[in-house]
Simulated scan of single mutants.
Amino acid sequence: MSDLASPPLRRIQRIRHELHRRDLEVTRVERLSPHFVAITLHGDSLANFRSDSFDDHVKVFFDDTPGEPARRDYTPRSFNVQRLELTLEFALHGSGAASDWARQAAVGQRLVVAGPRGSMVIPVDYDWHLLIGDATALPAVHRRLEELPPEARVIALLQVDDAADRRLFPEQMQVQWVETTAELQAAVAALTLPEGEGFAWAAGEASAMAAVRPLLVAKGLTKEALKVAAYWKAGAEAFHETLEA
């Protein structure tokens, strides 16, 4: 076992999509755990919807102030092209335009969704896959696991405050659950990367991810074998960016 990753051999594919704004109807609301709800949306405008990567995000619009809808980024958890159904998962922590709407969401309500604007398609045949994130990353992590072949080697370091929100993942997956940002960073620092060519993906709160990225770079991961995204930022609204070196 070694902390040094092999040089990246595979090319990440970036795909641009034509941007569409869709007015959709809620058709199903499912409570997944104490702080997560899955909401399924339907509409004929989804006929040309594309989401080619677990890392995609759509822009969701919530009525906040008249004429000034709040906008938030969410991972397309799943899409059924036959039924024209898009499912998004919402974390119900704290108060905000998105979580407040999700708590009261009911069948028949409307929601406007735009995007994805593009996809970053990460090959599934790496020797290993490292997934790191807080609760906001769980929908993307779960989708990635469904995309990967059963024999894929997956290591996950996941931060969830409430143990009741921890998800069941395949037994062959190496998963470590932690409760705090400090514990997540310590777990990343202590991790020994497997041999072979791998890819590391991480997403969560901005300052936490800014601390995680150099820990991964120090293990020999290059920018071609690494993506770290800030899904949110403490004290800020509608924050989403990819962190670079």
Rank of each mutant, 00 (worst) to 15 (best):
D3E: 03
L4Q: 15
L4M: 08
L4K: 06
S6T: 12
S6G: 03
P7C: 04
P8Q: 15
L9M: 07
R11I: 10
I15T: 08
R16S: 06
L19S: 01
H20K: 08
H20M: 06
R21A: 01
R31E: 11
R31A: 13
L32I: 15
P34F: 02
P34I: 07
F36W: 09
V37T: 12
D44C: 11
A47G: 04
N48F: 13
R50W: 09
S51Y: 09
S53G: 10
F54P: 05
F54V: 02
F54G: 03
H57F: 08
V58F: 07
V60I: 04
F61C: 00
F61E: 00
D63R: 02
P66W: 06
G67A: 00
E68F: 04
E68T: 05
V81Y: 08
Q82P: 04
E85A: 04
L88F: 04
L88P: 01
E89I: 08
A91R: 02
S95T: 15
D100T: 15
R103M: 07
A105G: 14
V107L: 07
Q109I: 03
Q109D: 12
L111A: 02
L111P: 02
S119P: 08
I122A: 13
V124E: 13
V124W: 06
Y126V: 07
Y126W: 07
W128L: 11
L130I: 06
L131P: 03
I132L: 11
G133Q: 13
A137T: 01
A140S: 15
R144D: 03
E146D: 12
P149N: 13
P150L: 12
E151S: 11
R153K: 11
L157Y: 11
V160C: 07
D162F: 14
D165Y: 10
R166V: 11
R167L: 14
F169V: 15
Q176W: 02
E179P: 05
A182G: 15
L184F: 03
Q185R: 15
A186P: 02
T192M: 10
T192F: 05
E197P: 06
E197H: 05
G198Q: 14
A202H: 00
G204P: 05
R213L: 14
R213G: 13
P214I: 05
L216Y: 04
L216Q: 00
K219V: 11
L221W: 00
E224W: 07
A225V: 02
A225Y: 00
V228W: 09
V228A: 07
K233M: 03
A234R: 15
A234D: 05
A236V: 13
A236W: 10
A238L: 05
A238K: 05
F239I: 01
E244C: 07
A245Y: 09
A245N: 10
